[in-house]
Design a protein around this nucleic acid. Structure first.
Lengths: 252, 252
DNA sequence: TATGTTCTTTTGTTCAGACATTATGCAAAC
DNA sequence: GTTTGCATAATGTCTGAACAAAAGAACATA
């Protein structure tokens, strides 16, 4: 180690010894800022404990008091004899916060592409009618999208929109779907009721997703609800199981 | 305070200064025992820090090092000028969110059966070690269960328990797993980090679950964490996709 | 009685330093 | 070339001590 060029960070650090806020809490704040600093997120080691304590004019113990908590929160990783750095950010589909596919991908720094987009007006069949809580045969819009990365599509989405929303079919479906709903239709999704299962690829899916017939496919059906518990969208996604895993954190 | 009748507890306390296990961890164990003691659960104050450190022959700081963690886990409550006691166990929330398989089934009024139960002691491979945050090769208990309804098994579970829990292999695994953990090991699961994917049945799974090879299988891997964000259990479940759908509500 | 005031108890904060343990790189030995 | 061992650097553990701050009890006063 020893290399510690850009002291810029360190020089600007200040601790208020007269503040009623305990020193270790002030240090914690400083460390949290560092954790948010892209530089440290890129794997650079934090200033070592001795340096930090010297620079801040406090004891090493106090620095450790702060780092201990952050380590326990798994924001930092310490390694004896090596140093301390920011823990790799866990992929954030999680924290029970759900977003659209595009946002999920975007959050992970992954560039997705739309391989096909198709909008059509159809009549609700029994399944769709049940999920959207409308009568069978009701007119509504169906959106089909084949999406994936540069190396090819890996998910086929089908969305059915509740007629109440007033989709016209002329929306720019390259945008984030839920942004469109919020911005243009003042429809805020607050609940997603999901059902996930495994199926085998039929001919249609195998062609769309570029996998052999009878490959493993993760099927995700979900109904998205607004704050009044009214269904907004019924969405079915077929994912190539070799390229996609559904991740979620469940707290109690 | 000062009243400290049943020193019975304190007298029997011992710390091994020559053990390779750090003192603060030994203290933590002692404190966890106290937390399990009904006496302390009833609101009695723990021995005060000074007494405890004197009795154990270690410094007050070391005692605090241990208590700090337990406080952060919300197992203990400290109050300046008053004392430290065991936090009231909260029993709420468990309703909606996640529960064990047995409880899920039970809640739906479905009777499940165990078709096979097998406990073995193994060494952690790379995957298990990573998930449980331990070193590869560490000894731990593996629990395998084939479970289902009267018409046959539909899920094959494999559980790996973190060595810290202290599973003996003699537990009654017919009971609710998480009840065992809570009642007997004072381990409270509060977070489940799940990864769901689709795979094809191999020979082993096809035989266990009674489906043809290459049938669709829903694979669910999850790590269950305690309030201190420490992994408790790594669990892998293989579900017959024709008989099981993973359902979840996601709120935002 | 109600309200301050002071004292005691207990946890909270902070320090400076010693030594242990682990990882790494480099040099010497094989 | 590979291993071994040593020096170095970083975090891990632990100590003993001092003073601060909050809660509660005891006491005094209006």
């Amino acid at each position: 180690m020893s290399e510690q060029k850009n002291i810029r960070d360190l020089k600007s650090l200040r601790i208020d010894h007269d503040s009623p806020v305990p020193l270790h809490l002030q240090v914690e704040e400083i460390l949290r800022d560092m954790i948010n600093d892209p530089e440290y997120q890129n794997g650079k080691f934090l200033p070592k404990e001795v340096d930090l304590s010297k620079r801040l004019g406090i004891s090493r113990n106090t620095v450790r008091q702060a780092t201990n908590r952050l380590v326990q929160e798994k924001l930092l990783i310490r390694k004896k004899g090596v140093g301390t750095k920011v823990a790799k950010k866990q992929v954030e589909t999680r924290l029970s916060n759900w977003v659209s596919f595009s946002q999920e991908m975007h959050a992970q720094g992954i560039d997705f592409r739309n391989y096909e987009i198709k909008v059509s007006q159809i009549k609700a069949d029994a399944e769709v009618a049940e999920q959207l809580e409308i009568k069978e045969g009701h007119d509504l819009f169906k959106l089909e999208r084949l999406r994936g990365l540069d190396n090819g599509p890996f998910v086929y989405f089908i969305s059915y929109f509740h007629p109440r929303i007033g989709i016209t079919g002329n929306e720019d479906f390259e945008r984030y779907l839920y942004d469109i709903l919020e911005d243009e239709y003042h429809t805020i999704p607050v609940l997603s009721r999901e059902q996930i299962s495994a199926i085998l690829a039929n001919k249609f899916l195998s062609e769309k997703l570029g996998v052999p017939v009878n490959s493993a496919i993760l099927q995700r059906k979900r109904v998205v609800y607004d704050p009044g518990n009214r269904p907004i969208e019924y969405n079915i996604g077929y994912y190539r199981a070799d390229q996609f895993t559904y991740s979620i954190d469940i707290k109690r």
